[in-house]
Design a protein around this nucleic acid. Structure first.
Length: 502
RNA sequence: GGGCGCGUAGCUCAAUGGUAGAGCAGCGGCCUUUUAAGCCGUUUGUUGAGAGUUCGAUCCUCUCCGCGCUCACCA
């Protein structure tokens, strides 16, 4: 049984009073004729015509006078003011004032007009309760004090409450609703862009017998009838590339990935990923498509390719800056990785630079290079930038640069100092791929949990012949953060992962 | 997982080792064009949970729970 606080008990009492009057507090049918903004627009188009309207929405404010009451209701389109007067409503006005609360959903009918102070308002002739609100919304308001200082409308602010009770957050903070409308637009724009380029949207398994395509720890679950453990996917990569073997030339998927790892302002255990694979393309073509796609999305969502993010103004218009990884590390860290061909050698060079963090002493050469990037280079990449040409040993699914077996054709897109996307010319040589898997298997035996187990079926697919192709992956949540100027992934997830209550 | 910080009324926040406060919301009045109205009156608490120190703990100590920041982890 729910326990009610004093405010809720008062509302429950009102509910009883309503029912005692024979009023259904949660009726089934609504007969709305206009949304709030439709009614206002239609009235403003010609104010000499009497406009009758029936509106529906939630009571957000009430100003009850003796014989008149002003209120605002809010619906999906916005707010509209109501004017209720004893002249039309008689004793029902008092009934309205006494038994209706902020947060209740109501239906109101009447005639649109403009008040003395100029606000388009519904003059209410009839009203009906649609749903009684038992728990008060956490709304608040500010007040101007005698000395002129304004106490701000604080409203719901507690980040935990806002995330746990997103419904209340959405109900009370219109800008939060706007953020999620923009998020939907981000996804739609990406889809439109890729569809227009001839990509086929597909859906691949979330429950997988093996996980792969990324270096991350998976969530494990169990299928009862099949009597086997299964994993929630950590990427789409290996399944999407199987489709290239099947002669689907251009495929993409937008969906959820699951990684059983730490939570931070840019990591949630489940997150939305976009991946596409493009036969007969290489990473340079993917780079061009990427900057076009992100610029298109930015423009669709914000109206411009220039986007404000915190103190920065980001320009997404192609072409983006390109930095070759070796050169970028040389410029920011002062180390030429080509002069340090072994991990021991590179580690020595790094130690001389005395970075703030210290690299793992057992790290491979590739991981040390990765360390240099995140320590020195990454924080400088504010404007959209492609960092390209990665070490082979941290890129097991990418193809080497012809003539440079240590380096692969791979790039990552950086914006605002963090990684937005990752792409490469995909490895399509089954023998090379098997070799790389085996090398990773060694890592796996050595206790590196992030390395994936060998996927025999993927190799079987590749042996049938996989066309040369370029692949791409991007965190949709992160793109949404940037395009909505939010600095935490939780702000762009409706229901971010939180610990169980109590 | 480590470090730092936070948790007080429905919401936003004060406060002191000695009976826990404000604004808004709520409740009761007055007000027929208000603008998150105004005026008068008024209620609200297991101070996150538990233990300890103390004559006395919201405050000090410890444990636990939750959240935030940060580091680690993380293509």
């Amino acid at each position: 049984m729910a326990e009610y606080n004093s405010l809720e008990k008062i509302r429950l009492q009102k509910l009883e009073e309503l029912r005692a009057e024979g009023i259904e507090a949660y009726p089934t049918r609504v007969t709305r004729t206009h949304t709030s903004q439709q009614a206002i627009a239609e009235f403003e188009a010609n104010e000499t015509i009497e406009l009758k309207a029936t509106l529906a929405g939630r009571i957000r404010s009430m100003r009850a006078g003796g014989k008149i009451t002003f209120a605002h209701i809010e619906d999906g389109d916005g707010k509209v003011q109501l004017f209720l007067r004893v002249n039309e409503l008689n004793e029902r006005l008092e009934f309205f004032n006494k038994l209706f609360d902020l947060g209740d959903f109501i239906e109101v009918s009447g005639i649109m007009f403009r008040t003395k102070s100029g606000e388009v308002t519904l003059h209410v002739h009839d009203f009906k309760l649609l749903a009684k609100s038992v728990t008060p919304l956490p709304a608040d308001k500010d007040v101007t004090l005698d000395d002129g200082t304004v106490v701000r409308h604080a409203s719901l602010d507690n980040p935990e409450l806002r995330a746990r009770q997103r419904y209340a957050d959405l109900a009370v903070n219109p800008e939060v609703r706007e953020t999620f409308r923009k998020r939907a637009k981000v996804v739609k724009s990406l889809r439109d862009f890729l569809d227009d380029k001839g990509f086929l949207e597909v859906e691949t398994p979330i429950l997988q017998p093996l996980y792969g395509g990324a270096a991350a720890r998976p969530f494990t679950t169990h299928h009862n009838e099949l009597e086997q453990d299964m994993y929630l996917r950590i990427s789409f990569e290996l399944y999407l590339k199987r489709l290239l073997v099947g002669n689907l030339e251009k495929v993409y998927e937008i969906g959820r990935d699951f990684r059983n790892e730490g939570v931070s302002f840019k990591h949630n255990p489940e997150f939305t990923q976009l991946e596409f694979y493009w036969a007969y393309a290489d990473y340079l073509q993917v780079m061009e498509l990427t900057e076009q796609m992100v610029a298109y999305t930015a423009e669709q969502v914000t109206g411009s390719t220039k986007v404000k993010y915190g103190e920065h103004e980001l320009e997404f218009k192609p072409p983006w800056k390109r930095i070759e990884m070796r050169q970028g590390i040389l410029d920011t860290a002062g180390i030429d990785i080509n002069e340090h061909k072994t991990a021991e050698d590179l580690l020595k060079a790094i130690k001389q630079k005395q970075p703030k963090a210290s690299p793992d002493a057992k790290a491979t050469r590739g991981k040390l290079i990765d360390f240099l990037v995140s320590e020195f280079l990454e924080p400088t990449l504010i404007q959209p930038t492609f960092l390209y040409n990665y070490p082979r040993d941290i890129s097991p699914l990418a193809k080497s640069i012809p003539g440079d077996p240590m380096t692969v054709e791979r790039f990552e897109g950086y914006v605002a100092g963090f990684e937005l996307c990752n792409a490469f010319t995909e490895l399509n040589d089954p023998l090379d791929q098997e070799q790389r898997f085996i090398e990773m298997g060694r890592d796996y035996e050595a206790g590196d949990e992030d390395q994936h187990p060998l996927d025999e079926d993927y190799l079987r697919a590749m042996r049938y012949g996989m066309p040369p192709n370029g692949g791409f992956g991007m965190g949709v949540d992160r793109l949404t953060m940037i395009l909505t100027n939010k600095h935490s992934i939780r702000e762009v997830l409706l229901f971010p992962a939180l610990r169980k209550e109590e």
